[in-house]
């Protein structure tokens, strides 16, 4: 094998990576533009005033706080449910195992609009009103698979013997859980939880279907979507976009570093 890539391959690969990242950098640039009504390039002037403006805008804070709350609750639910399934799936084979694994990936394999419209059709049947809670319900459904993927990969990598070894040495199921399983599964769960948080925090498609009307169910992505369709102060939207990006970027990076030594690097499958 040649150990060095042909120049044309290097250039196209590099250009592809640039194509993935330049647009996001532009978002940052436009947060400093002095032009508020259009996306003129290059920006006529640079200013930092939009950060202050965004900070003082009363309509940004409630969606931000709601998004954080929703992501937090959805992550907790997904962590519990995802861990339970991965524990069951890593054990002995049982009838319906393959069907169950299909069921878990379904909410993410089907287009978001399907999950959204399905919940939209079903929630009134359960006599529930659309609210922030129904948003959590929708988010948790597609976050389960994220936690599950991380946990089950770690279960697979754990030398199956160590759980048996713990029992062999006299530990009951609860001692094995606390002393052996949790320390070994912990980083995978943390990584899965962080990815689930990032995913929930900026989710918009399912959210639009499961949110109630009015400010009480307006998450930050829904606020952003409104601004995209009916722009007001465009640079403020850029400031918010930066915040959203940072809030998802950091957990993703964290998840990567938590699991990079293993074969199951987080995020390989969304």
């Amino acid at each position: 094998m040649r150990s060095d890539a042909p120049l044309s391959l290097k250039l196209t690969a590099g250009a592809g990576l640039l194509f993935l990242h330049l647009p996001i950098l532009l978002i940052f640039l436009y947060a400093f533009t002095s032009e508020e009504r259009s996306f003129a390039f290059p920006p006529p002037g640079l200013t930092t005033k939009w950060f202050a403006v965004a900070w003082n805008r009363a309509d940004i804070w409630p969606p931000l706080i709601l998004s954080l709350q929703v992501a937090f609750l959805a992550t907790i639910l997904a962590l519990i449910l995802g861990t339970l399934i991965s524990a069951a799936m890593s054990g002995a084979k049982f009838w319906g195992r393959d069907q169950l694994s299909l069921l878990i990936i379904l909410p993410i394999a089907l287009p978001g609009v399907i999950t959204g419209i399905a919940l939209r059709a079903a929630i009134p049947m359960l006599h529930l009103d659309f609210s922030a809670l129904t948003i959590v319900l929708g988010h948790a459904t597609f976050c389960i698979v994220i936690v599950y993927n991380n946990a089950v990969a770690r279960f697979r990598r754990l030398s199956g013997g160590i759980l048996e070894a713990s029992a062999d040495l006299g530990a009951n199921a609860f001692q094995t859980f606390r002393h052996i399983l949790m320390p070994n599964l912990g980083t995978a769960l943390l990584a899965g939880g962080m990815l689930a948080f990032a995913l929930s925090f900026d989710e918009v498609i399912v959210t639009t279907f499961t949110a109630g009307v009015g400010a009480a169910s307006k998450t930050l992505p829904i606020w952003m979507l409104d601004e995209l369709i009916r722009p007001r102060q465009r640079p403020v939207t850029n400031v918010v976009a930066m915040v959203v990006f940072a809030t998802t970027f950091l957990p993703i990076l964290g998840a990567y570093y938590l699991t990079r030594d293993g074969a199951e690097t987080a995020g390989a499958g969304k």
Partner: peptide, 20 residues
């Protein structure tokens, strides 16, 4: 009697040492 209550211990084939 489940494994953890048996006064029997095992040296596993892959040793199964606790990595952490």
């Amino acid at each position: 009697t489940p494994p953890h209550l048996r006064n029997v211990n095992t040296v596993f084939q892959d040793y199964a040492l606790f990595p952490h």
